[in-house]
Design a protein around this nucleic acid. Structure first.
Length: 490
RNA sequence: CGGGAUGUAGCGUAGCCCGGUAUCGCGCCACAUUUGGGAUGUGGAGGCCGCAGGUUCGAAUCCUGCCAUCCCGACCA
């Protein structure tokens, strides 16, 4: 394996692919479009799951699990939903194999299913079909459920973490007595996602509303968090949908209110996926490898001993044992890499590639001076510090690194939101600078569509709390009341 | 689904035009010397050259078919 990865300026796309593979997050599998998430990558996902799961529970949600398979007929019950997903569904048609005359394994045509099963691309239909049996009265509401699951969408073109045929995610599905309550839930979960992105992923996001074109299939309103990657392309990092009564009507889910009037239930759904892993990599990493925010790093601190003789190593080990204890009290994870089979320089490079936030190197010189060498992954700076108070220093530094990574990403994001007033400027900036372009739009799907066809840029969102401002649409010149954010996106 | 490319050791590759049983680097194994930024030396192991046919005395190389993957587009979390 070559030692270094291609620089991200040379080929961003290839840089991303090489980085994911060489840093041991994931690899391509034997199945087209599907990846193997390796232990190092999966442990980051587990940390994301743990943090999000706690946030869901803190906002009153419970986990449940629904089937992987959905009867085909369920899909046709909500018209726009089926239209949105029909083209990318994996379908189970048979349930048995057999040996043919040549001894080959073939599908047993006698084992054809009466009704085909769809491998879930999302679970609204099976869940709402189930909710019918769970909800009779306003006393059963709200129903606040989340599911951690895998889903399958047969995408034409896949990319590690960003778009795989099968991916892992969570999907929240809630039921409410009133539209207002459901809308409040939709907004609450959007805020949870934004909070998670900024405080855990160190990823600044813009909260906004999708246009009708970009809305989830079956939703009345879709909210999203949009992030900016280092190559200037936008990435939708999470969505929260207000589904109105669409699914309740499709699956006949009614409840009696306090006045004993029957009404359809109001719904929301919201989700984030392993795509966040892609966002994490693309937002912070550099040509030397991953840069992980300390809160999600599987290893927060690595200690590399430098020694010639066994007794030197023993001294260092004794010191590290104490440090490990102190850090454990602070819930900081430390790896002591005392492998004798690799030299220190090799280890330094390896942990840089893997994005470990802090590295401590200790040699005999340090042991004599009662110091260690501390190296930060985010700034690539090194300093020699006293052993005294090291645990406290590490704790503070990890916090500082978390903040620094966020601030750096925030600065980049803010520098790449550009106000644009003419279509020529718009097209020029898309090619030369990228990022978010804040521009006036006449509010029609036709205009949005035309801009997309001509420039590949889409409206990422209409930011929440968007300032109202008179202007003219960059394409048609028609009057507009606010700017919206355009970008080329993943 | 359109366009482009690639399949040779665990990884990355040379050889292919012009047919003669496979090159180099990394990694791996053993031993020794090493250890403050990806160690060095010596010795060694490892190959149905993507799969199936065909041409030929002989195929990694030429021909046909298939399969797979990657990249670029249209579609999407």
């Amino acid at each position: 394996m070559s030692r270094s990865i291609i620089s991200k300026d040379e080929d961003y796309s290839q840089w991303f692919n090489e980085l994911v593979i060489k840093s041991d997050l994931a690899e391509h599998s034997a199945v087209r479009g599907c990846m193997v998430i390796k232990p190092y990558g999966y442990s980051i996902w587990e940390k994301m799951q743990a943090a999000l799961d706690q946030m869901f529970k803190d906002t009153g949600h419970s986990n449940a699990y629904f089937p992987l398979f959905i009867p085909k007929s369920f899909f046709s019950k909500e018209a726009s939903h089926v239209e949105g997903f029909a083209k990318e569904c994996a379908v189970v048609t048979h349930y048995r194999l057999k040996n043919d005359a040549d001894g080959q394994i073939v599908v047993d045509e006698d084992a054809k299913l009466e009704e085909e099963l769809i491998v879930r691309p999302t679970s609204e239909t099976i869940i709402w079909n189930t909710y019918r049996g769970w909800i009779q009265s306003y006393r059963d509401l709200p129903l606040l459920i989340n599911q951690w699951a895998n889903v399958v969408r047969w995408e034409m073109r896949t990319r590690l973490f960003l778009r795989t045929t099968e991916f892992l995610w969570q999907e929240g599905h809630t039921a409410h007595a009133t539209a207002e309550e459901a809308i409040a839930e939709t907004e609450q979960m959007l805020n949870v996602y934004a909070d998670f992105a900024e405080n855990w992923l160190a990823l600044p996001v813009i909260k906004g509303r999708k246009t009708a074109n970009e809305r989830f299939a079956g939703a009345l309103d879709t909210f999203c968090i949009e992030a900016l990657m280092q190559d200037g392309k936008a990435l939708q990092a999470g969505t929260s949908h207000f589904l109105g009564q669409n699914f309740a009507k499709a699956f006949d889910v009614k409840f009696s209110d306090k006045e004993n009037k029957l009404d359809y239930v109001w719904a929301t759904s919201w989700g984030v996926s392993t795509r966040l892993m892609g966002a994490l990599v693309m937002a912070h990493s550099d040509d030397a490898g991953l840069v992980l925010p300390p809160k999600l790093a599987p290893i927060q601190v690595v200690v590399v001993p430098i020694y010639k003789h066994q007794e030197e190593l023993d001294n260092i080990s004794a010191f590290v044992k104490e440090l490990t204890k102190e850090l454990r009290k602070k819930s900081i994870s430390l790896k002591f890499d005392n492998r004798d089979t690799q030299r220190p320089g090799f280890k330094f490079a390896e942990y840089e590639l893997k994005g470990v936030p802090l590295r401590v190197a200790i040699g005999s010189r340090d042991m004599q001076n009662r110091t260690v060498e501390l190296a930060r992954r985010d700034t690539k700076t090194k300093e020699t510090v006293p052993q005294q108070g090291l645990a406290e220093r590490i704790e503070a530094l990890l916090e500082e690194i978390q903040q620094n990574i966020y601030q750096k990403a925030l600065k980049f994001r803010d520098e790449n939101i550009t106000l644009v007033d003419t279509y020529e400027e718009f097209k020029r900036l898309l090619d030369e600078k990228g990022g978010f372009l804040s521009a006036h739009w006449d509010g029609t799907s036709e205009t949005e569509q035309r801009i997309k066809e001509e420039t590949k840029a889409t409206i990422r969102c209409i930011p929440l709390n968007n300032p109202q401002e008179e202007g003219r649409c960059i394409l048609t010149g028609k009057p507009s009341v606010q700017r919206v954010l355009f970008a080329r996106a993943y």
